[in-house]
């Protein structure tokens, strides 16, 4: 039941966002910025989608419904993630112009447990300086990373230490998703 309500609500909010500004000046049946037809149609559609997709959208736990986690996620997106991305682009610009590369594929084990956490960490690694996620070991959640400029001191220990690749991202992701 909770899964159905959450799925239908998310659907309805998405529909409202996509039809914003549909209010008609000639008609008096308007709810602020939406016309009444769009709202009725959106309600019917989102109830249908909620019945069909409730088991696909929410798998096990309702952990991500906590608003504190959303605030942390937004803070992470506009703070450390955006700075990392800006650095990554100047790094790529430097390597495009000079042509200095020293690539290699290394393995790290960040010890994340949930699927959402692994997805977020992998996407963050792809968009930050000099690294690109290539493959994943599905049993142990280890990530294989293509690194454009391999540092000598990182190769001493064999599963390479997390801090060379992702900095503090794994701590942020653990706070958001686990």
């Amino acid at each position: 039941m909770v899964a159905f309500v959450v799925t239908a609500l998310v659907c309805f909010i998405t529909y409202l966002l996509l039809t914003i500004g549909s209010a008609n000046n000639a008609s008096f049946l308007n709810l602020w910025m939406w016309s009444i037809e769009e709202i009725i149609f959106g309600l019917v559609l989102s109830i249908l989608v909620g019945i069909v997709a409730r088991k696909v959208f929410i798998k096990k736990s309702l952990r991500m419904l906590n608003p504190v986690r959303w605030l942390k996620f937004i803070g992470y997106m506009i703070g450390p993630f955006f700075i990392g991305m800006a650095k990554a682009n100047f790094d790529v610009a430097y390597r495009v112009i000079t042509g200095k590369i020293n690539p290699g594929i290394v393995k790290i084990s960040p010890n994340l447990k949930t699927d959402l956490g692994v997805t977020m960490l992998a996407n963050s690694i792809t968009l930050t300086p000099g690294t690109l996620t290539v493959d994943i070991d599905e049993n142990t959640n280890d990530l294989y990373i293509h690194w454009i400029n391999v540092k000598k001191e990182a190769l001493d220990k064999m599963p390479v230490d997390c801090k060379f690749i992702c900095g503090k991202f794994d701590k942020h992701v653990r706070g958001i998703a686990e």
Binding site: N102, G104, I105, V106, L132, D135, H146, V150
Partner: peptide, 20 residues
């Protein structure tokens, strides 16, 4: 990237390739 590695493209001038 995963498709490229599985279809047999090796990284050029790689120092280390643990995925192999």
């Amino acid at each position: 990237a995963r498709a490229a590695h599985r279809s047999g493209v090796k990284p050029v001038g790689a120092v280390i390739d643990e995925l192999e």
